[in-house]
């Protein structure tokens, strides 16, 4: 088995899985019915991506999709810390989504050229979906930033909470280096300036300041998480843990 490829697929897949799980928490509780539907749409696309990646990681290790998705220990989840952060209010959810979408769109565009056919195939579909997600989250960041005093303030608070988790989106190590050389993975150095430009553009319209360079958290890619992931997993894994080996 290609150990690096497995690791790479998990990192990407866990980003989708954990964010999809978080977005699912909103269902039935959105600020307006139309937005409830829109957030669920995003969750459905992202969970669809997660399924393809969990299935692929399973094929690489002779496991089933659900075994990979549900039956790992906390330190074996490789998502960035950003996506496991609690939903908070709508401003926090939307800003988290915007940071992630602004990363994912250029990432998937590049991944379309991957020599790995499963990944390039996924990227082809995901580019279309993520284009819409980014449009949706950007529009909301602008609306909230340039809406009322309250919405602006809430967005600023969300920014203070989330900014330190954005640096990890561009974390790369030997896994990336090897797979970039093989023409499989995306070179994250190419993605960073695109992300920076998008954030600047949207923040300018949202009347938000990009925070001064600050210390960035990392650890997710190596399985070191915040306290929030454990609770998310205990809910998500509950049935698979309580009733091992069942069909559903």
């Amino acid at each position: 088995m290609n150990k690096e490829l497995y690791e790479y697929v998990l990192r990407m897949g866990d980003d989708s899985l954990i964010l999809g799980q978080r977005l699912g928490e909103w269902c039935g509780h959105g600020p307006i019915l139309e937005e409830d539907i829109a957030l669920t749409n995003v969750a459905l696309d992202i969970l669809g991506q997660a399924r393809i990646l969990m299935d692929y990681a399973g094929k690489l290790t002779n496991k089933k999709e659900d075994e990979v998705a549900f039956l790992r220990e906390e330190w074996d989840y490789k998502n960035v810390l950003l996506v496991e952060q609690p939903n908070g209010d709508f401003a926090k959810t939307i800003l988290r989504q915007f940071f992630f979408d602004a990363f994912r769109l250029p990432f998937f565009k590049e991944l379309q050229n991957s020599k790995d056919e499963t990944l390039s195939g996924l990227a082809l579909k995901a580019v279309k979906e993520t284009t819409y997600h980014l449009q949706h989250s950007s529009n909301w960041v602008i609306r909230l930033g340039d809406g009322t005093d309250e919405s602006h303030q809430r967005l600023k608070t969300a920014l203070e909470e989330l900014w330190m988790f954005t640096g990890e989106l561009f974390y790369a190590d030997e896994v990336d280096t090897k797979l970039v050389n093989e023409g499989i993975a995306v070179d994250l150095n190419k993605i960073k300036p695109i992300w920076d430009a998008k954030v600047s553009e949207v923040f300018a319209q949202a009347k938000l300041q990009i925070p001064e360079e600050s210390w960035m958290q990392k650890g997710g890619r190596k399985g070191k998480h915040t306290e929030h992931l454990g609770f998310l997993l205990s809910e998500m894994q509950y049935m698979q843990r309580a009733y091992p080996g069942c069909e559903w």
Binding site: T40, L44, R51, W248
Partner: peptide
């Protein structure tokens, strides 16, 4: 939507999770 959404985060498989989300979304529609 509420009693069903109650199980989205605990659905026993990914396939069921996605189907349930889509179902509750239909109800919103």
């Amino acid at each position: 939507m509420l009693p069903e959404a109650n199980w989205i985060t605990r659905a026993p498989s990914l396939r069921r999770k996605v189907a349930l989300l889509a179902k509750v979304q239909d109800e919103a529609g």
